[in-house]
Design a protein around this nucleic acid. Structure first.
Lengths: 197, 197
DNA sequence: GTCTATACACCGATAGAC
DNA sequence: GTCTATCGGTGTATAGAC
């Protein structure tokens, strides 16, 4: 498992710079462009340094992914603690910058076993995040025919935000205002303005 | 532009087999696994044959993409001509097999300029597909506060179907039943059972 | 139409000097 | 902690035999 070679400290600034470079390359050229040489070049370093700070490329990608997830989780938890958690959740998930990274990691999961395992793990965690904040407002809206699962509503919002972000990155903008208006309307219906507001 | 080399006929069965192999590799291992060697190996051929039938890898990917789009368009148009176009549209777009390819090509567009151009072109075409069949039923449902754009509804259905398919391919299934139930419910509301049915 | 042989670039990864 | 040097493997692509 472990490698017969010196590995740099996790607190190193250079190590963090390599992870920053991974995210930059992913955003700009997609995950398929992630090579040790390109990542190091983006960070202004020699490519051999990648293997001083990480056992291999997978470890670099996994560390970057975990850092991204950690940041994403924090942002999400803060949003869900707000006055109107569903509105805040939509605001976070319709942010194009995060969405592109999320979808890139998701697409990467389809061919990288290490990243796939982490995606499955976080995917399940994500589905149960902040449900205690969301359950009430949606239940309060009162749907006549079928119960609207808070989990399902949040996932749909996440899906729409993710692909809106990816399309924006690619250069497609058609129907985006209509789509945003539709989600805005749904979110307003499900989580009305508080009487005190 | 053109290459100084013999190029095989478009009607060739071997050429089609290479495109089949591209789709198979994309589905199984993601777009980043698409190399001339792996595609040819999947088709049981030598990798040099790729460059007999296609000028380069981009041409192979583009030809495969165009074939996929053509098939997808046909399926969609047939669905939209049915009794309940919105229901049929959801059925087509929640098919995991097509969805995975759609998202893989979408993700690939983020770093492949040739594929990106085709995605943008088809993306705009897709947004206007079959709107004449959809506009009436949705308008007929009568929304009180804000008009539900048929275009937006169809894009949301497409987005949800796409990411459901990708997640399924990756191995995530949590909340999928709830999400499907939610979309089913929405589609039923927007396009009720015909009185004659 | 398919093969062998080959070119040259880039890849991940390691060893060892400084 | 960062460097030079280097390895074997794989990538796209071409030339030419059969």
């Amino acid at each position: 498992m472990a490698v017969n070679r010196r590995i740099g400290a996790e607190s190193s600034a250079t190590r963090a710079a390599l992870m920053d470079a991974v995210e930059a390359v992913m955003r700009e050229d997609g995950y398929a462009a992630l090579t040790a040489r390109r990542v190091a070049e983006r960070a202004g370093l020699k490519h051999q340094l990648v293997f001083y700070y990480f056992e291999n490329m997978d470890e670099l990608l996994l560390a970057t992914y975990r850092r991204h997830i950690s940041h994403y989780r924090d942002t999400m938890e803060e949003a869900l603690r707000s006055d109107r958690p569903l509105h805040a959740f939509w605001a976070v998930n319709s942010n194009a910058r995060d969405a592109v990274l999320n979808v890139e990691f998701l697409a990467m999961s389809n061919h990288n076993e290490v990243v796939r395992a982490e995606t499955v793990r976080f995917g399940e965690e994500f589905r149960n995040m902040g449900l205690e904040h969301i359950a009430l407002p949606i239940g309060g809206a009162g749907q006549e025919k079928e119960p609207l699962s808070p989990k399902a509503v949040m996932m749909v919002i996440n899906f729409v935000g993710s692909l809106l972000g990816l399309e924006t990155a690619i250069g497609i903008s058609g129907a985006h205002p209509e789509i945003r208006a539709l989600v805005d309307w749904c979110v307003d219906e499900l989580e009305p303005t508080p009487v005190g507001g």
